[in-house]
Amino acid sequence: MTDTTKILDASGLQCPMPLLKTKLELNAMKPGQLLEVVATDAGSARDIPAFIKLSCHELVSCTESDGCYRFVIRCGQP
């Protein structure tokens, strides 16, 4: 993704670390910036979209390929 501002590689981390690292990264970003999260923990497929629904952020895309989950999140206005 050429317009992705930051990439967070959470591969190999177990729940709840991918979600916690995603939250920390988003807190440090400016509204409108994009964050691409790469995770291998299956719980991320449930946890990250659930968190985004309750937050000011937007889930731009969510894909899974060979046990690798990719989320592109647009940082929202707090």
Rank of each mutant, 00 (worst) to 15 (best):
P31T: 05
P31H: 13
G32M: 08
L34R: 15
L34D: 09
L34K: 15
L34S: 07
L35C: 04
L35K: 10
L35A: 09
L35V: 02
E36N: 09
E36S: 12
E36P: 00
V37I: 08
V37T: 04
V37R: 11
V38I: 14
A39L: 12
A39I: 04
A39T: 02
T40C: 00
T40M: 03
T40Q: 02
D41Y: 09
A42H: 12
A42Q: 10
G43C: 11
G43A: 13
S44E: 00
S44W: 01
S44D: 00
A45W: 11
A45D: 10
A45F: 10
A45I: 05
A45E: 12
R46C: 05
R46D: 08
R46K: 14
R46S: 05
D47H: 13
D47L: 14
I48Q: 12
I48T: 01
I48K: 11
P49Q: 06
A50W: 01
F51A: 10
F51S: 04
F51V: 01
I52R: 10
I52T: 06
K53V: 00
K53W: 00
K53S: 05
K53H: 09
K53G: 00
K53Q: 04
L54N: 14
L54K: 15
L54R: 15
S55A: 03
S55C: 09
S55V: 01
C56P: 04
C56A: 14
C56R: 14
H57I: 01
H57F: 00
E58L: 13
E58D: 08
E58I: 06
L59P: 06
V60D: 04
V60N: 06
V60L: 08
V60C: 08
V60Y: 06
V60W: 07
S61P: 01
S61A: 11
S61Y: 08
S61K: 13
